[in-house]
């Protein structure tokens, strides 16, 4: 952020309104500088850093099977009790979740489930568009969690995006990772 460079100009400065003029100069400079805001839903979208804790996803192994062993540690440690896990035994004799529901309306995105998971299955991703118009839609099931996007590589970048009203679950379609994304902070730090 740029700052005005007004020193104490004494009474001469006050008579000629140097402080007011400095303010005017600052706003004039701002007026002809680049805008710093994202044009979020329409043109671009901010992808958070990888450390961001957003919408959950469940990892799968190479055979396309979920990593989760339905140990229920995540649902035990969850401070707001938003994870429901019901285990069952599959054909191979492995313990797998039959039901894995997360109530996003209760979830506080603390990431404790991620820490507790012994099988490296549940992770918190970078998605943040979970708003919806009907509360039951906020309960996500196993297949949603498996289908949810994984960690994005280019965290901390602004990607081109497009608003698709009336689209499917997520109405903001983002371009593929790495496509023309840029570092937003570039503009902001410059003025200092």
């Amino acid at each position: 952020m740029a700052r005005t460079s007004v020193k104490k100009a004494g009474w001469i400065g006050r008579v000629f309104f140097l402080d007011l003029l400095a303010g005017l100069r600052l706003t004039l400079r701002y007026m002809f500088s680049k805008t710093v805001t994202h044009r979020y839903p329409d043109h671009e979208k901010w992808v958070p850093y990888e450390r961001h804790r957003g919408h959950h996803f469940i990892k799968t192994n190479d055979e396309g099977d979920v990593n989760c062993v339905a140990c229920e540690l995540c649902s035990q440690i969850c401070p707001c009790d938003c994870i429901t896990v019901i285990p069952y035994e599959n054909e191979k004799g492995d313990r797998r979740p039959k039901v894995f529901d997360i109530n996003l309306a209760r979830c506080l995105y603390c990431g404790l489930c991620e820490d507790a998971c012994p099988a490296d299955a549940i992770k918190l991703g970078q998605e943040y568009e979970v708003a919806c118009d009907h509360r039951p839609k906020l309960v996500v099931h196993l297949e949603d969690l498996v289908a949810a996007p994984r960690k994005a590589e280019d965290g901390g970048q602004v990607r081109p995006a497009r608003l698709e009203p009336g689209g499917k679950r997520r109405s903001v379609a983002t371009a593929a990772a790495g496509a023309e994304s840029h570092d937003w902070w570039r503009h902001i730090r410059k003025g200092k």
Binding site: Y30, M31, F32, S33, K34, T35, V36, T37, R39, D42
Partner: peptide
């Protein structure tokens, strides 16, 4: 628009 640009934002665009 002037308000927006003085505050370094684009203002109404849609």
């Amino acid at each position: 628009k002037i308000a927006a640009h003085i505050q370094q934002r684009p203002g109404p665009m849609r």
